[in-house]
Design a protein around this nucleic acid. Structure first.
Length: 103
DNA sequence: CAAGTGACAATAA
DNA sequence: TTTATTGCCACTT
C-alpha cells in the first residue's frame, strides 16, 4: 500500500521529536519534493491534530503558520513552549536551537 | 479544460 | 532587517 503525499507528510511530522520543530521546506525535502506549499496544504487538510503535531511545523524563518487550525497561532506558540521550544521577541522560533535534525 | 488560490521559499531592493 | 515579487505544484471553482 503506497502512501499518499499527505500521509507521507503526516508520517514525517509525526517523526518530529518533542522540543524540536521542522520547516515546511525541510519536510518537503525529506519527502522528495521542493514544493513546501503542498506540505502546507497537507497540514491544513490534517484530519487529526492529536495524531499529527502540525504545531511543530513552522516557516523557514521560524515564524508560525498564519492559519493554524486548532485555535490560532497563540495556541500553537503555547504548545511549543510547553514542549520546551523557546521563542525570540520577534515571535520566531529559535531554529538554530530547535530545528529538527532528521539524521 | 482554464484560471484562481494557497499553513511556502528564495531572491531582490 | 523588512517588504515586495517570482517560482512551484496541487487543489478548487
Amino acid at each position: 500500500m503506497i502512501l499518499n503525499f499527505f500521509q507521507r507528510v503526516y508520517a514525517v511530522v509525526q517523526r518530529i521529536p518533542s522540543g524540536n520543530v521542522a520547516t515546511y521546506g525541510l519536510i518537503a525535502d525529506l519527502i522528495g519534493t521542493k514544493d513546501a506549499r503542498r506540505v502546507g496544504h497537507a497540514l491544513h487538510a490534517n484530519p487529526d491534530s492529536s495524531k499529527t503535531p502540525c504545531h511543530r511545523v513552522v516557516f523557514s524563518d521560524g515564524r508560525l503558520a498564519p492559519g493554524y487550525a486548532f485555535g490560532g497561532p497563540e495556541e500553537q506558540r503555547r504548545k511549543l513552549e510547553s514542549e520546551g521550544v523557546s521563542f525570540l521577541p520577534n515571535d520566531r522560533v529559535i531554529l538554530s536551537l530547535h530545528l529538527w535534525d532528521p539524521t
